[in-house]
Structures are given as C-alpha cells and as structure tokens.
Amino acid sequence: MASYLRPTALSEALAELARRPCVLLAGGTDFYPARGRLTRDEDVLDITALAELRAIRITPEEIWIPALATWREIAEAPLPPACAGLQQAARAIGGEPVQNAATLIGNLCNASPAADGVPNGLALDAAVELASQAGRRRLALADFILGNRRTARAPDELVLGLSIPLSPLPARGVFEKLGARAYLVISIVMVAVVARFLPDGRIAEARAAVGACGDRARRLPALEAALAGNRPDPALVASTHLAVLDPIDDVRASAAYRRIAALALLRRAVAALAPDRERPAA
C-alpha cells in the first residue's frame, strides 16, 4: 500500500529509511514529471519539513548547500566568485517556477546526464554528505554519481547537502550552457570551469567538467593539466582534451555535434575566466 510521510526531524526520517527503502521527495520537479498522471504504489518520504536542511552556510573554508536549498536561493545567496558558474546555472534551470521549488541536491540525486548541477559540482570539487542511522559520510561528487540515474546512495541514506571547499587563493567559476531555446531548456551540452589563481594572474589549479556528453558529467584532467600554470587562454583547449567524453546521438543533437560544441564552449569558458579587461576572444 502506497504510503507518505513528512517528518519534521532528521532522526525520524533516518529511522523511517532504516525501516524500508523510500522514494525521497524534495521540490518534486523530477518526481512528478516522471510519474505523469498515473499513481504509483510506492512509499514516499517527503523531506521538505526538515528545518535543519534549509539554511545555506558560508564560511571561509566551505560553502554548505543543504538538501532543501532551492536553485533560487542559491542564485540569490552571497556566494564567492568561485560559485559564479553554479549561480549562472541556478538562473538557467528551467524557468523561475522551477527554480523556486527545485533543489540542487535533488538535481544531483536524480543523476540525469544533463543535470546542470553536476558539472558545476565537479568543477567545484564538491562532496555530498550522506546520513543514515549508522552515521554520516562524505563522498566526492565524482564518486557519488555512478551513471545515468545511478548514485552511490544506499537505500537507507539521505543526502544532507553539498560541501564546496574554498581555498585561500582567489577563484572564479564559469558555466556555459547550450540549449536550443532561451528558457525551459535541457542542455545539449554544458561546461563548468573553476580556476584558482596565483597572485600573478596565472592559474594555480583548474577543474573543468562537461555534461550531457555521456552517461554522466566528466572532468577533463588533461585540460586541467594544460591550464595549470598558464593565464586563461582559449588556445590552451585542445580537442584531445575531450577524449574522455562519450556523447550519444539523441533528439537534442548528434554525438559529433556535442563534441564540437563542448570544445567551443570550453574555449569560451576559459576565455571568460580571465578578468574582463584582459579577456581574449574565444
């Protein structure tokens, strides 16, 4: 018999998950479309009354995005420039009605290959924190997302939030989304790049990730290596850096096109890393 529970304390939620696997429900923006008009025989655990999973926390070392933070809240939060790409993504998810309800954590847990949250999380070197009655653990996002709609979450676990580490070095994040229309559009390809800068303007360390080019978003280690030690310059981006991608043909675009677009977007993203006054053309 289908059941529904909306606990107000995390302990109650974890106790329920320990008893039986449940479908977790947050903003519902993936939950409902997947169900259409038909009802399902399933046990739903609605986490939206868990007040302890609401507030975004910003410290010098870490940004904490809890499970119930909506895209809108992320867009409006006073986050540092490292998160600028994530915030751009927040404003480009669907339209405002979706942004006001949908959560970043739901986006990660849903693990769509086209989830805009994932490449940003990868580029930010973020980790999810999971909790069960047995305790808590942190998992790098890259280890959390296993494939198309597959994550490393155990059936009795709940994702509490996402931890974004900050470095003392100044950092900038960029997100480039390609869709076939202006709003309400799932990405054909998207790229996220976050770089930490040395005082002389050279990149100390960069992370770049590409989404919608395979069963999950991927980091591009070769590109990251090429960027390190250099000023942001689109010419540093080579097509060979994209070898780890594995795009497919679908209704949105061909695989071949996705490779071309990913390359072009990466070049633009790298160009956009530079401060405005010395931005090279991509």
């Binding site: 903003g27 409902y32 009605p97 309800a101």
Partner: peptide
C-alpha cells in the same frame, strides 16, 4: 510536468508550478 507554466501560482509570494 512543469514544462508549460499554465499552472503557475504564487506560493509564499513566489511563482511555482502548481502541477509539481
């Protein structure tokens, strides 16, 4: 499915898709 916005209402003053 959240795709058309015809069901848009305000929830605590902010627009949301009432179908979701």
């Amino acid at each position: 499915a959240g795709d058309c916005g015809a069901c848009t209402v305000l929830l605590d003053g902010r627009q949301v898709s009432a179908c979701l």
